[in-house]
Design a protein around this nucleic acid. Structure first.
Lengths: 104, 104
DNA sequence: TTCAATAGTCCCATATTTCCGAACTATTGA
DNA sequence: TCAATAGTTCGGAAATATGGGACTATTGAA
């Protein structure tokens, strides 16, 4: 069974992380995911309900390719989590520093 | 004498800062400016010599509008500095956390 | 003064990126 | 088997970035 592809820890780049989090929608997605102990489906973590499915899907793809989230399929839906440990290992303090002020 | 306009400290937004620094060229500009005790002209802080003047000028405008740098005219050239104190006052630790890993 | 050189900005055409609707796939539950 | 649900993919439209060239402003030299 092939899962979605995520970059290895070392391949997470600062540029990629910043570009991914520079979009307010994606920043909100990550914030919501972090506030949740459990995984969340894409729609559950959607920043606004009227966003097109394709746009939402694209945002999650960007987050995955930047290495910010991990996605696995569970039945009909995706289970998304922030790759907090990997990101902190690669860029200590970065995620916390950014999200501390997100959504003010 | 009218100078360039910079947003007030409180108007510096996380979204604006991230969007500005998400571009690798602008990130390098800020890094170079921070490494310099003094101000730098736009061309002196240019990330690559073959970049078009108009593009470079645009990058500096984005950095200004995001509140990341302050620009004053001195004779024929601009003097640019990072608004480190203002940014740190608004988002403590953010700039340092980002730039710690820039250019690895 | 006048003139050339220098540093940036502005404008516009092109190139790239993003967004969304619609069609498609895959999984579940009835 | 069929309908419903969750995401993905594709293609065109809208938004954004890039760079060339003309323009402005300042300086320093003749």
């Amino acid at each position: 069974m092939v899962q979605f592809v995520h970059p290895a820890r070392g391949d997470i780049t600062l540029e990629g992380v910043l570009a991914a989090l520079a979009d307010p929608m994606r920043l909100r997605i990550v914030k919501v995911l972090l506030g949740q102990a459990d995984c969340l489906s894409c729609t559950a973590a959607a920043p606004c309900p009227d966003m097109a499915k394709s746009t939402l899907s694209n945002h999650f793809r960007v987050l995955r390719e930047a290495g910010l989230i991990r996605t696995t399929k569970k039945g009909v839906e995706n289970r998304n989590t922030v790759r907090e440990a990997d990101i902190n290992a690669r860029f200590p303090g970065l995620l916390k520093a950014i999200l501390k002020h997100a959504g003010e």
